[in-house]
Design a protein around this nucleic acid. Sequence first.
DNA 1: GCACTCCTGACCAAGAAGGTCAGGAAAGTC
DNA 2: GACTTTCCTGACCTTCTTGGTCAGGAGTGC
Lengths: 152, 152
Amino acid sequence: MRVSAKADYAVRAAAELAAEGADGPVKGERLADAQDIPLQFLEHILLELKHHGIVRARRGAKGGYWLARPADEVTIAEIVRAVEGPIAHVQSTPPEDIEYRGNSEHLQAVWIAVRASLRNVLEAVTLADLVSGELPTVVSELTADPDAWVAR
Amino acid sequence: MRVSAKADYAVRAAAELAAEGADGPVKGERLADAQDIPLQFLEHILLELKHHGIVRARRGAKGGYWLARPADEVTIAEIVRAVEGPIAHVQSTPPEDIEYRGNSEHLQAVWIAVRASLRNVLEAVTLADLVSGELPTVVSELTADPDAWVAR
DNA sequence: GCACTCCTGACCAAGAAGGTCAGGAAAGTC
DNA sequence: GACTTTCCTGACCTTCTTGGTCAGGAGTGC
């Protein structure tokens, strides 16, 4: 139940692209500098994002990366899935495919709920939201509770 | 963002203990059989649960494991934390400790919301809920949507 | 032709995941 | 006191993932 460095990097780089807007391609090096990400590692990540149709790129002198779609149509969930794979799998299988026996019969519903609650957050936030700071109400409701900010 | 086999096993074994109630200690072998978990692996897991004060044990002829507290006072969140460590850490650090620069400034709030939404589910469900099948409303609301049951 | 930038695969070290194995230490039984 | 039972513990193992680095190839623009 943790967020990998790769997913974190991917979202941050994508946010940077979203902020640059339509001012032409942005170089990988610039993204790496802006968000303090190892360049070569970032290039692999950007390639994955490209393969998933989230980002586009051009090589050469005036080359660089840009978002394949408007920033308000790209969600955090998409980016996380692109680099980490499916969200909230249990033992590497999707929760809807698991069959529990005996007293843990209802555990499946719990994992389904876990996945649904993650989706509620990750699919609600777009890159445009992230850059503007105007996060969806589902997020601001969750972060409003001071308890959400303390470790446990 | 995935659930490990260990966490899954731990919850299932604990559910089994909750169902057995106060009928004395339950042997590890019985738990392993009931939930189809490799015995030796399960023993390591139960030991961790014991160290975290969730389970108690006695050795010898009439020995076995039992819950340290009533089943309605033990949450899934506790069990997951005991075997997997803190929930929703980013790059192995808690979200409240991360400082983002530039255009990903608000990403911290998103990760905080992710953690909060996970807690909302995992801290709401107790072992008693799990065994009885009467899951808290937060769970049944999330699982009511057929969309929650399909892959994406 | 040349500089620039992305693209790709190979590699690598460390750690985690998912176990197995062997033995020791308490608890109960005869 | 011996013996069985069951937990307790650490060592070990294999495979995969994480978080990168390195080296070179392939488009693109001037």
